[in-house]
Amino acid sequence: MAERSGVTGPSVVSKYVLRVVVLAYLLFLLVLPVVLIGWKTFQHGLGPFFDALTTHEALHAFQVTFIVALWAVALNTVFGVGTAILLVRHRFPGKRILNAVIDLPLAVSPVVVGLALILVYGRFSSFGGWLEDHGIKIIFSTPGMVLATVFVALPLVVRAVVPVLEEMGDEQEQAAQTLGAGRWQTFRRITVPGIRSALAYGIVLCLARALGEYGAVAVVSGRLVGQTQTLTLYVEERFQNFEQPAAFAAATALALIAIVSLLVIKLLQRKAD
């Protein structure tokens, strides 16, 4: 490419100018923050980092985060695969609308997501009040946090799976049917292996988003320390209380999770291609 760009691409000078501008921009916006995370982690060695992460509150926050994330990922996976199959393999009136609605959460502010859920499931709404009278508490409790996380991560699995299902076509599934496989057998033995990489990619994406969600969860959780506090909420709370080391240790843990997810996603993307 480098040789060919000499023929038609920009001249050598503009090539270097572009490169320097882009690298400088990415240095200040992206690379330095990453370096800072690493530096903060190892500044005082790994000992204090682990100490900060193994306090009772931190461990509890980890626990809450994972419970909420696992529920959200499970729900979004089932919904995502089902909806992707509906969109690609079936026809029904209103398909265009369903297709558009799935992308809706991308355009909604996390805070608005939280507000929306409070308005329906909160104690002062008629439905939420009725549920609370029957002993079901959604807002300021785990179910509400799961709902909020499902909302913000809703399109991720669908959008990962749809293109692969389309590309795969339905001939393999039809072949399985003519060979005697039922719906469930066809799904489990042909469809799932066919979308495996894309599904894994969507799930990791969804998991990363679920672990890192802040705004929507901040609204619906009530931010009750030691009860509904997730890791992201813990980061904010410790920071506001001037406990920087604790905030940074948790932030670093989250960043590491993000970076690992990112690498796994890249790997799965390459595999899917």
Binding site: G212, Y214, G215, F248, A251, L254, A255, A258, I265
Partner: peptide, 11 residues
Amino acid sequence: ALPTIVAGLVL
């Protein structure tokens, strides 16, 4: 991939 609160803190 990075949680927004972490991004905010780092920035």
